[in-house]
């Protein structure tokens, strides 16, 4: 790791101003991703602005839903009584990720910013357009077992590794950010990008902007009874998803009145399954409908040499998560 300047401001405005002055500066929160990347030489900063002492930790119920400070740790969110009761999908997804120690360190804001685990991104001796634009995509013709099915480009087929993000996508979260130009709100669906021609950009944050909170709408809290986060991985815990599915259903009289579905491990962003949601609305709770929904969700999927199995695993996981959410399986 190189030498860098380190500051630890106590106020958000100071932190934002500080970063604006530093073209090669980074905010440091939990450090679980950034410090790792610095050790691997993926990030070589001139300056770190440690934001851990900023007053952005609050988790509270608001008039419009739920406010989660960007510096709340993943554990604090997953253990929060009101979140567990009203937004259980979020708690389940968070607890499916990483390890207890890492969840204690990692923040909500940091998790949103988490970069891909693509092995080519992590090895500076291999090509990666995300790390070094123009160097090529190592995964495209390489070992792409963990890679995308949806929304990839010939520049990048990496996936977003976060579990939390998948739940946030399903729950219609809003990301609040602030920068030198002032605050703004970004819908979760607009926050993460598809790679396109600029895989180096994971999200739509502007240079110098700081995530201050994640807000969940009241409407999503109605989806708290029929919920499941299914994560399929190579070992039982402490592994990234091959495929994951966040499923939350609203059911009246065995009829699905609303569905919220998103997948992880299949795209450069958490992949909301809107067409499947639309299909399920008004349908009866049964496996056939789930299978049909999964089939719809998979339209447009494109696999590569080593991840063809996901074309089967993903729809199976959708069906199974719906069965588990509705009690058709246990």
């Amino acid at each position: 790791m190189n030498q860098f300047q380190y500051t630890r401001p106590a106020e958000t405005a100071v932190a934002v101003k500080s970063l604006a002055k530093e073209p090669n500066g980074y905010f440091l929160a939990g450090g679980t991703n950034l410090v790792d990347m610095m050790k691997m030489g993926l990030v070589v900063p001139d300056k770190l602005i440690d934001i851990n002492r900023l007053p952005l930790k609050k988790i509270e119920k608001t008039a419009t839903g739920m406010h989660i400070g960007a510096l709340a740790s993943n554990s604090e969110v997953a253990e929060h009584a009101y979140i567990k009761a009203q937004y259980p999908l979020l708690a389940l997804a968070i607890n499916a990720g990483a390890s207890p120690q890492l969840r204690n360190m990692a923040t909500v804001g940091g998790n949103l910013m988490q970069r891909t685990r693509c092995p080519y991104f992590f090895d500076t001796a291999m090509p990666c357009n995300k790390r070094t634009p123009g160097s090529g995509c190592g995964a495209l013709e390489g070992i792409n077992r963990m890679h995308a099915l949806f929304g990839a480009s010939d520049k990048c087929i990496a996936v977003n590794p976060s579990d939390m993000n998948v739940a946030l996508a399903a729950l219609d979260a809003t990301i609040h950010v602030t920068g030198v130009k002032g605050p703004r709100a970004i819908k979760i669906g607009d926050f993460h990008r598809l790679p396109g021609d600029h895989p180096e950009l994971d999200n739509t944050l502007q240079k110098g902007e700081l995530i201050t909170s994640v807000d969940l709408p009241t409407a999503s809290s109605a989806y708290n009874k029929h919920v499941y986060y299914l994560k399929i991985r190579d070992r039982t815990s402490y592994a990234f998803a091959l495929v994951s599915v966040a499923a939350a259903l609203h059911i009246e009289n065995n009829t699905i009145t609303g569905a919220r579905l998103a997948m992880g491990g299949v795209a450069h962003k958490p992949w909301r399954l809107s067409t499947a949601e639309t299909f399920l609305k008004g349908k009866a709770v049964n496996e056939d409908n789930f299978k049909h929904a999964a089939q719809i969700a998979m339209q447009g999927a494109k696999a590569y040499e080593y991840n063809k199995f996901k074309l089967k695993l993903a729809p199976n996981a959708i069906v199974q998560s719906l069965k588990l959410a509705t009690g058709l399986a246990s």
Partner: peptide, 21 residues
């Protein structure tokens, strides 16, 4: 990755030794 003769999972996150679970 045979193109480079280089491991792509030479770490404890991607080379999975069993965990408690």
């Amino acid at each position: 990755d045979e193109r480079y003769g280089r491991y792509i999972n030479g770490n404890f996150a991607d080379y999975h030794v069993p965990v408690n679970a």
